[in-house]
């Protein structure tokens, strides 16, 4: 993994994925949930997406938390991409409408997933879209890739989700991402539905694809120096004075 921030470790907050999944079958981890302040029963108001019954929340296993954080990472990425494109003024016509609608959807997905995860939610990364939000053609090919990858990511995780309530919510997002994908593909003149069966990808495959874009800025990089300190150097700035 070349990108040091977006690794399996980053979304697999406490190693749930790397444990053998079978070992946590039936494990409600109620103690962990209580400590993490994760319990979130009932509706979350308005159009919030991921409302669970109290009993469903109790059953939210560590691996489901990891899967939701994986989904949240992808939604952060999409929301940030589309939101930046709104500000960059490179789109018009139906492309601009697509962007506006989908940006709102992805931001809502972020809110819903953060709400469901509570304090267990991963933090929003910082992004660098490298000009892809500033050119209609680059935007279009990037959006196709993001939406198709989102479909494959959700498809890949669905069978691994333990909680039925979480599964329903994931399914409801999956189909919307598929609609996004078909929409932008059609705008671009590509096949909206290239196959009879969509193919899932594993979490690792999706994270690798995302890392290759280099859209997510590394967290631990040397801080950019906009300022300097000459303490101890004895010299002064060479301004004209």
């Amino acid at each position: 993994m070349t990108n040091e921030t977006l690794t399996l470790e980053a979304v697999d907050v406490d190693g749930a994925i790397r444990e053998t999944a079978e070992a946590v079958a039936g494990d409600t981890r109620a103690g962990f949930l209580a400590k993490a302040g994760l319990l979130s029963g009932g509706a979350f108001g308005g159009s919030t997406l991921l409302a669970f019954t109290a009993e469903a929340a109790q059953a939210q296993s560590r691996s489901d938390v990891a899967i939701l954080n994986f989904a949240l990472t992808l939604e952060y990425l999409e929301a940030a991409f589309y939101t930046e494109a709104e500000e960059m003024g490179a789109l018009d016509g139906e492309l601009a409408l697509f962007n506006q609608v989908v940006a709102a959807h992805e931001r809502a997905h972020v809110r819903g997933l953060r709400s469901a995860l509570g304090s267990a939610a991963v933090k929003r990364p910082r992004f660098d879209f490298r000009g892809t939000t500033e050119s209609a053609s680059a935007f279009t090919s990037t959006a196709i890739a993001l939406e198709d990858t989102g479909v494959q990511a959700y498809s890949g995780q669905a069978p691994r989700i333990k909680s039925d309530a979480v599964l329903v919510s994931a399914g409801r997002i999956l189909t919307v991402e598929a609609r996004h994908a078909a929409w932008i593909r059609d705008i671009a003149g590509q096949d909206p539905a290239p196959r009879a069966f969509d193919r899932p990808l594993t979490m690792r495959q999706v994270l690798a694809a995302v890392a290759e874009t280099r859209f997510i800025r590394p967290a631990r990089r040397r801080r950019r120096r906009q300022g300097g300190s000459n303490t101890g150097s004895g010299t002064s700035p060479r301004f004209t004075g």
Binding site: A158, P159, V168, V176, R179, H180, I187, P192, A193
Partner: peptide, 28 residues
Amino acid sequence: APRLRRQTLPAAVSIVSVEARHASWIRR
């Protein structure tokens, strides 16, 4: 989907996203 056993779910998942693509396409 949530009523299926998880081992049967991949089949439904690989179909439902395609149906959603169809829906989006004709709506467009």
